[in-house]
Amino acid sequence: MVNYISKPAYKAVAHFGQITPTAFKGYFTSLIFWGTATVFGLATFTEAWPLFQKNVYSKIPVLGKHWQKEVDPQDLPI
């Protein structure tokens, strides 16, 4: 009896859309670098936004005191 392969046995690689683990590994370093750039870009442009100042930037260890607003209670409007 002849044992032969009639066609290649195709097997689907695990993927998300067209991104496979191998492709993702190739992009991973770049994504990390661009992610950091994006975070700092957003930080630069939201720096004057009170919501971000209060919740994010005032909590940065050393630099944070720049965004901590301390007004004498006497000087606040009633």
């Binding site: 670098f33 661009w34 950091t36 750039a37 700092f40 630069t44």
Partner: peptide, 9 residues
Amino acid sequence: SVFLTTIFA
């Protein structure tokens, strides 16, 4: 990406 990070940071 590092150049841009340096500029923004």
